[in-house]
Design a protein around this nucleic acid. Structure first.
Length: 429
DNA sequence: TCTGGGGTCCTAGGACCC
DNA sequence: TCTGGGGTCCTAGGACCC
């Protein structure tokens, strides 16, 4: 279809959550820092100093207490509001460099670069310009990988991060074949985008350990063992672009809201509060993307790590007679489902809801027996506007309770520096 | 004491139909 | 004694991602 070869860049922020915290608290520079998941449970972001200590992604915080004291690891609760805002700033800058941007996750984007080479001495210098401007305008360090396929751009980004000789930007196409083969021979297959723990182990068993060997394996052989997805990955490693940029994010097919509790929950009443709360969060997201939902799922379970406790886990799908985005109807359906699956006498650790069968609101099917009430849409709009202006959960249904004893704990939260007037950073003179 | 949350895609197998 | 074949749809589960 295209004659000019594609050029992809992957721009990825280094240790994103930790770097965001360091922007606003310079004392954290060069210190071992982790950012923890909800309830301060696991390490979800680690500074280089912490990675060097051998702390793995997702490692439980309570298990590292000894190491933390020994090395003075600083632990911070997640400050998602701050990270989301910083992410937006980075993505805005990236759009200045290329008209083709796919925001892939909160801290990384793919850019289409082909055609832009005439504006720059080389793709590497374009990458350096990106690095420099993001650093100067947001304070966040990023690395850039450049290659003819997305999968290779991911690997290039990995090299840019790990190999100092690249200076944070790696353009694979600028390497000679022997040099490239040398780098790929040093990379394990598990580093490849799409190769997880399971598949890496199976590849190992077939004698395919390095990326270089994987790249040399015929895609048909891979297909026989692993299916079409892995075949595509190997083709991409060989420089054949199979995955294009997704510049417009399609609406989500399902929306999930679930949380572990900050305290154990036994009563149905408290579970009802939590389920109601989660559903209101999910419903807001549903309206944000302009969809309606035809079925909701609700699930609860005990703490699987407490193996000596009696365990219970269950979920149920509740179909709706008419597709809706009305928080009140969605909450009612979820609570109805909860009553079906609730069993007394267990210590519950987590609950959640899922919105299923989503469809655009623009093609709403009018039901024979019920009509859409225009006042409902208006009510939901006012609800969303108030919460957007004054902070999440400013106004909510009474069923989600007031005390919310079960709410997740955040014992080390930093200020929401960029999105709350009362939490702005202060400069003392 | 203390172990995250939110997504996508693919496949296998069962139900059902003609 | 002998008991088809092919297609679709749905769901659960597995694998991956950040």
């Amino acid at each position: 279809m295209e004659n000019t070869p594609r050029v992809f860049a992957l721009v990825d922020c280094n240790n994103f959550y930790v770097s965001c915290e360091r922007v606003f608290n310079p004392k954290l520079a060069d210190k071992p820092v982790v950012v923890l998941s909800n309830n301060d449970g696991c390490a979800v972001a680690r500074s280089n100093e912490v990675k060097a200590l051998g702390v793995k992604m997702g490692a439980p915080w309570f298990q590292m207490q000894h190491l933390a004291r020994q090395h003075g690891i600083i632990a911070l609760s997640s400050n998602y509001t701050l990270y989301a805002d910083m992410s937006q700033r980075v993505m805005t800058i990236l759009r200045d460099f290329s008209p083709e941007v796919e925001v892939y996750s909160i801290d990384e984007s793919f850019l289409g670069l082909q055609g832009l080479s005439s504006l720059w001495p080389s793709y590497s210098e374009l990458g350096q310009a990106i690095r420099h401007r993001v650093g100067q305008w947001t304070g966040l360090p990023v690395c850039v990988g450049i290659a003819p396929t997305k999968t290779l751009a991911k690997l290039a980004n990995h090299l840019a991060k790990k190999r100092p000789e690249f200076g944070g930007v790696c353009d694979l196409a600028s390497l000679g074949e022997p040099q490239l083969a040398g780098y790929l021979a040093c990379l394990e297959v598990g580093e490849v985008w799409g190769v997880g723990r399971r598949i890496a182990a199976r590849l190992q068993a077939l004698g395919i350990g390095s990326v270089q060997v994987l790249r040399a394996t015929p895609p048909q052989v891979i297909r026989e063992h692993f299916g079409v997805v892995m075949e595509r990955t190997v083709s991409e490693l060989r420089g054949i672009s199979c995955l294009d940029l997704d510049e417009v994010t399609p609406p989500k097919q399902q929306i999930i809201a679930s949380r572990s509790f900050g305290a154990l929950v036994i009563s149905q009443e408290e579970l009802r509060e939590a389920v109601s709360r989660y559903m209101q969060t999910a419903a807001e997201k549903l309206r944000q993307q302009g969809s309606l939902c035809s079925a909701v799922q609700v699930f609860i379970h005990t703490n699987p790590f407490r193996t000596h406790d009696r365990q219970y886990s269950n979920g149920v799908v509740v179909p709706l007679t008419q597709a809706t985005d009305d928080s009140r109807r969605l909450v009612a359906a979820a609570l109805w489902g909860l009553a079906r699956i609730y069993r007394p006498g267990y210590c519950y650790k987590k609950a959640g809801v899922m919105l299923l069968d989503l469809a655009p609101a623009s093609v709403r099917q009018a039901s024979l027996f019920s009509q859409v009430n225009p006042r409902t849409a208006q009510l939901m709009r006012v609800l969303d506007e108030l919460n957007a202006a004054h902070g999440r959960n400013t106004i909510h249904l009474a069923s989600s309770g007031i005390q919310q004893r079960w709410a997740a704990r955040f014992d080390h939260r930093t200020p929401r520096y960029t999105t709350r007037w009362d939490e702005l950073p202060r400069v003392h003179t």
